[in-house]
């Protein structure tokens, strides 16, 4: 797998490249900013790019902006945005601008080799990954926002695994259910959230987005 990295902290960038290399991935580009990354991969796009969310010049959400730009230039390249903030706000922002082949991971989990590789391959395959820590925090909340209130516990559990980027089969394995049962739950979630499009992959992202937004403050 070919990976390009945009990360402003040199130390972490080199460590991440080291880790990826050790995991058998090929790091084609490792630069400190999004604009440099876009320039560097123009000739030969990688399978996945890893973007730090905070980069120069403003150190706020450059990662998300770069992701948006990249998706226009290279629709097939998977995007993994790294952050140290376990905020659902940035995850939902990301999923709003890039709706497939995208992931939002916390740096803490990136250093977990298995989780990193799994996320990279899911993103490369066009899946959507949201860091389990963010998903867990959303679910831990006692208050049940109105939209999430309409899902039952099992459906919520299925949605959570969807958010973490698992396929129906993966969810079935995880929850010790049959694939058919999971499918039923998934379509029930879509129906309850008013997602009637036939494109199920798109519906998955929308469902996750709805889930992430439910954690946001009332506006």
């Amino acid at each position: 797998m070919r990976v390009a990295i945009a990360e402003d902290s040199g130390l972490f960038r080199s460590s991440l490249a080291l880790l990826l290399n050790s995991l058998g991935a090929e790091v084609t580009v490792a630069v400190p900013s999004g604009t440099e990354l876009i320039a560097a991969i123009a000739a030969s796009p990688p399978d996945v790019v890893i973007l730090d969310i905070r980069m120069p010049p403003s150190f706020t959400d450059e990662g998300i902006r770069t992701a948006h730009a990249l998706r226009g230039l290279h629709p097939d390249v998977g995007i993994l945005v790294l952050s140290t903030y376990a905020e659902s706000k940035y995850a939902s922002l990301l999923l709003e601008v890039v709706n497939a082949g995208v992931g939002y991971l916390l740096k803490d989990n990136v250093t977990d080799a298995g989780a990193l590789m799994e996320s990279l391959s899911r993103v490369a395959a066009g899946g959507t990954v949201v860091d389990p820590a963010i998903v867990t925090r959303l679910l831990e909340r006692r208050q049940q926002p109105t939209m999430m209130g309409i899902l039952n516990d099992r459906e919520l559990e299925v949605l959570r695994h969807m958010a973490e980027g698992r396929s129906n089969l993966g969810i079935a394995r995880e929850l010790f259910l049959s694939a058919r049962t999971v499918e039923t739950h998934v379509s029930s979630v879509f129906t309850k959230l008013g997602l009637t499009q036939s494109d199920t992959e798109n519906n998955r992202v929308r469902a996750v987005l709805a889930f992430l937004r439910s954690g946001g403050p009332e506006r």
Binding site: S9, S15, L18, N21, D108, V110
Partner: peptide, 9 residues
């Protein structure tokens, strides 16, 4: 984080 990544590597 860098050290963690290196340890993972």
């Amino acid at each position: 984080l860098s050290i963690t990544a290196r340890l993972s590597a």
